[in-house]
Design a protein around this nucleic acid. Sequence first.
DNA 1: CCTTGAACCTATAGCCACTAGAGGAATTAT
DNA 2: ATAATTCCTCTAGTGGCTATAGGTTCAAGG
Lengths: 136, 136
Amino acid sequence: MFSIGQLSKRTGVKIPTIRYYEQMGLIDAPERSEGNQRRYTADGLSRLSFIRHSRDLGFSIEDIKGLLSLSQHPERPCHDAHEIAVQHLGAVQDRIKKLRRLERELKRISKCDADSVSECAVIETLADHGLCETEH
Amino acid sequence: MFSIGQLSKRTGVKIPTIRYYEQMGLIDAPERSEGNQRRYTADGLSRLSFIRHSRDLGFSIEDIKGLLSLSQHPERPCHDAHEIAVQHLGAVQDRIKKLRRLERELKRISKCDADSVSECAVIETLADHGLCETEH
DNA sequence: CCTTGAACCTATAGCCACTAGAGGAATTAT
DNA sequence: ATAATTCCTCTAGTGGCTATAGGTTCAAGG
């Protein structure tokens, strides 16, 4: 039996976040001590680790609800889990593309060696989209 | 003189967002028509374009306030603008790194060809961080 | 057994950068 | 003149937390 603080330390999820997940229905309300404090089992620990890990990978709370309910039904085909992962992969690749364009742009404009703002490439580029090298 | 709708079309910034920027002090409150509707000048247009562009590049509202006040004082050294841009570049590069690790991970786990969830790599990987190839 | 201090409880509000909706007034086109 | 569209303000909601206030319970030391 873990207290919420112990659970937090073991999973790296902050205490208010754990309570938030409970409220959002991601984790079941655990048993309570006589004094009404939450007491978690190993099950709760692994479920929270699953959530933590999924959040690290950028899945939304809604996605995770889906993934969790899948993981609870091992007999079902894993098609749905793939769909969620693949869809997420697409979104991630999009974000990477955009960020790399942005990186190029920022590198370019921060090379500026002007003395005053009037000739500064940072300001100029921000003011005039036409000066950009790439679309974003 | 543009109405807020025309300004929105020209800059691609949604109407409620323009009003939000006004509230946040990013743009000055414009003149009003007799019937109390906002009327913008070319100045307002270019300022909003600047903001739009900066947001596209991922600068925060606070960053943009700084950049705007710099752009308003062309005699000042552009050191500060650089600092903002360079700092932002660092953050962008960090995000890219994380996303690329994540991409690898998602590619790996979505190759799974199991029939049921019980052997599915997606679920397994999410449940057990130890199976990951990379840190994240 | 009693005290102290840490950890816990609930409930509420705040963060960012918007977005949506209600209910009404002004403008524009026909 | 009327109808359609755009505009106004105000309030509340989004996601995923985080912080605060004011109180209760728990575990360890004396």
